[in-house]
Simulated scan of single mutants.
Amino acid sequence: MAFAFIFPGQGSQFVGMGQALADAFPAAREVFDRVDTALEQKLSDLMWTGEVDELTLTANTQPALMACSLAAMAALDAEFGVNITDAKFVAGHSLGEYSALAAAGSLTIEDTAKLLRIRGNAMQSAVPVGAGAMAALLGASVEDAEAACAVGSEKGIVQIANDNATGQIVLSGEVAAVEAAAQAARDAGVKKAMMLNVSAPFHCDLMKPAADAMEGALAEACILPPLVPVVNNIQARPISDPDDLREDLVKQVTGRVRWRESIEWMAGDGSVDTFAEPGCGKVLTVMLRRIVKGVSGNQLDTPDALKAFAKEIKG
């Protein structure tokens, strides 16, 4: 069995996230404590008993999702003997790439939490409220989405933000441009084009101020070679050189999340037949079914799920 860990991005959060892991496993609890200390905030309290509106603030959501993923990884290792080096690759969706790097030993948990706090604040403040928008195109190909963006670009900035799965593409940019692109997609016969309720237009050129902020923050961060290769969002191929990882984390802020291609590569050239999603929910596990056939997906968000996965891996 060849497997990869895939780490979720924004949208998987919910109040109560990770509490079952912290209650069941001391190693998981330690991860939450380390993140709380690094941020000088009881983020774990917000995650478990806080208000959903505060949890969904980008500056809180990003480190919270990372903490949940790394808590699951710590418990897998300490309680069940499943180590990151048992995996062939790691990958993460948007902010999940930071979780992947921390899991693979490239970043410390503390540095990852601080970087994601900077990233969350920078992305939220990069564009004035109401100036940006995102839209999901369902049933669209990349070519359909690019054609829609070409029409929308007459109104301003609009580009593909996420190539999530076969027939699931997200656009991002200025409001008028995204609306025009969504309408162009409908006119072209795309199954569904709907505006999304988001706090900012992520992964487009409007995020340039956030990319600049991350370039400065990452320049000072210690990034080590990962223990297993990281299939990153920018190249959709395995990367291990710290300088390349650092450069692509900056590009990722304004660049396309090439998730479909990443999964296709791991399942194809990478020969991965099993994927495991540590942390929160099953967003990426569900996407798998739309991208490749014949692979196994595992959501690792409860003590029982961790135990079952470890049994599958270890036999």
Rank of each mutant, 00 (worst) to 15 (best):
Q41M: 08
W48M: 03
T61L: 00
A38V: 03
D36A: 04
L55G: 02
S44M: 05
D45V: 04
R34K: 12
W48Y: 05
T49S: 14
D53T: 04
D53V: 00
E51Y: 14
L55D: 13
S44Y: 10
D53M: 05
T56H: 02
T56N: 00
Q41I: 01
L46W: 04
D33I: 06
T37E: 15
R34Q: 12
D45K: 13
D45W: 14
D45T: 09
K42I: 06
L55Y: 11
W48V: 03
D45R: 13
T56I: 01
V52Q: 13
T61Y: 01
D36P: 02
L43F: 05
Q62K: 08
E54G: 10
S44K: 02
G50L: 08
E40L: 08
D33T: 13
D45C: 10
D36H: 01
G50Y: 04
R34M: 12
Q41C: 13
D33H: 12
D33N: 14
A59M: 15
N60E: 08
N60Q: 11
D53L: 00
M47W: 04
V52Y: 07
E40H: 09
E40M: 05
T58H: 05
S44F: 13
D53C: 02
L46S: 05
M47A: 07
L39P: 12
Q41H: 15
N60W: 08
L39N: 06
N60L: 00
D53I: 01
T56A: 00
G50H: 09
N60D: 03
K42R: 11
D33S: 12
L46K: 02
T58V: 02
T37Y: 09
R34E: 10
T58D: 01
K42C: 07
A59R: 15
D53N: 04
E40N: 10
L57A: 06
A59N: 09
K42Q: 11
D36V: 01
D33R: 10
T61F: 04
L46F: 01
T49A: 08
L55H: 08
T49Y: 11
T37H: 15
A38L: 00
A59E: 12
T58A: 06
M47V: 07
D53A: 11
Q62W: 13
N60C: 10
W48Q: 09
D33F: 04
E54F: 14
M47L: 04
V52H: 10
A38W: 03
T49C: 09
Q62S: 11
T56G: 02
Q41L: 14
T58Q: 03
E40G: 06
A59K: 10
E51T: 15
K42W: 05
T49L: 14
Q62P: 12
L55E: 11
D53S: 06
N60K: 12
M47T: 02
L46I: 07
L55Q: 06
V52W: 08
E51L: 15
R34P: 03
A38C: 03
G50Q: 11
S44E: 06
E40T: 07
D33G: 07
E54R: 15
W48R: 00
T49H: 15
M47S: 00
L46C: 10
T58I: 00
S44I: 04
L55C: 08
Q62Y: 11
D45S: 13
G50K: 13
N60M: 13
T37L: 14
R34L: 11
D33W: 05
A38D: 03
T56R: 01
Q41D: 11
